[in-house]
Design a protein around this nucleic acid. Sequence first.
DNA 1: GCTCACATGTAATCCGTTACATGATTCT
DNA 2: AGAATCATGTAACGGATTACATGTGAGC
Lengths: 187, 187
Amino acid sequence: MPPTRSRAAVKLRTPAFLVLGMLRLGATSGYAIKKAADVSTRFFWPTSLAQVYPQLAELESAGLVTRRDDAHGARARDAYEVTEAGEDALLEWLRSGRAAPTQFRDEGVLRLFFADALPPDDRLALVRRMRDEARAAETRMRTDIVPMADALARGGTRFPAVVAHMGADAYAYAGGWLERLAAELEG
Amino acid sequence: MPPTRSRAAVKLRTPAFLVLGMLRLGATSGYAIKKAADVSTRFFWPTSLAQVYPQLAELESAGLVTRRDDAHGARARDAYEVTEAGEDALLEWLRSGRAAPTQFRDEGVLRLFFADALPPDDRLALVRRMRDEARAAETRMRTDIVPMADALARGGTRFPAVVAHMGADAYAYAGGWLERLAAELEG
DNA sequence: GCTCACATGTAATCCGTTACATGATTCT
DNA sequence: AGAATCATGTAACGGATTACATGTGAGC
C-alpha cells in the first residue's frame, strides 16, 4: 500500500492550467471559466465549453480540483475549487519552461508576403487595410479589455492588466509599423 | 453543353493560396514549396508535406495548376505551374478582405497572465525568460531569415523582405517591452 | 410572454500534424 | 559505405471547434 492515496497521474496539457488558473482567479463554474477566458486569455489561448467541461472532470478525477453542488433553486450549477495538489501543479507549471511552441497564424501577413503579385494600388490598399485592422484591434483592447483588467489590478491581481497592456501596445506597434510601410509605398 | 469547360468549383482555403503563391515565387515541386515555407511563411502560416501534396492534386483537378513530369534520371519529380485561372484566383484572394481570423497561441503569455500566483522572484524569472526568448527569436530571424529575404528583394521580389523585417522588428519590440517590465519588477 | 443569459454536457466534424512507406542521389 | 537530402505520397492520430441537446432564471 502506497503511503499516500495515489491518483491517476495524468499528464496535464496547457488547457488544464488555463482552467486551474481561472479557478484560482475566482471563477467557480465551467461556464464562468469560459466567460472569463472570452474577455482575457482568448487573445493568446482560446478555449471552448466543449473543452472546459471535460477538462474539469479530468482535473477532478486527478484530485486537482474538487466539485460541489452549487445549484441556485432548480438551476443546476457545479462549483469547483482548486486543491492543494492543484495549486502545486499550477505553480510547478508557472515556474517551468515552455512546452508548447508559440503558434501564430495570420492570413493578412500571408497576403503581404505574396503582395509582389499585386499592382501598386492594391498593395497599398492591402497595407492600409492591415493598418486599420491593427488600429481597430488596439482600440477594442483599450476600451473593452484594459479597463476591466485595470480594475482587477486595483484589487491586487496585477498580471492580467500587464498582459492586456502588452496586447494593446503590441497592436499599437503593429499599426505604427504598417502606417510607416504605407507611407513608404505612397512616396 | 456548357460554353466553357467547367471545373469543379472547389472553395479554396488559405493553404491553397500558400501553395499557389509559392509556385508563383518560383518553387516548382511540392517538396520545394515545403522547403520554401519552412524558411518564410512558417512563422505566420505553417504547413506540412501531408498538406502540400493533396493540395497540389486538388488545385490540379480544379485547373488552377498544371503538372508535368520533371524527373531527374530515375528520381521522380513533378513540376507544377500556375495557370491563368490560378493566377486570377491568387490575385482575387490577395485583393479580398480577411477570411480566417488571426490566431495566436502562446503559453508564455498565458503564464504571465497567471503570474500573480507566483512569488516575486519567480515572476521576475518568468519575465526574463520571456524576454530572452523574444531576443533569441529576433536574432534568429535577423541572421537566418532576413538576409535571404533581402537577397530576394534585390531581385525585385520585395514583400518577403518586408514581412521578414516586420517579424524581426516585432520580436525586438516584444523584447524591449519585456525588458522594461523586468526592470519595473526589479525596482 | 419572449428573449437573452446562465448552466452542463455530448457528438460530429474539421484540420492539421506525425508517423509510415518507399526509393534515388549527393555529400562526407 | 553511410548519412543526409531530394522526392512523393497515405494512414493514423490528436486537438479543437461547431453543432446538438436540454433546461432554468432574469429582465423587458
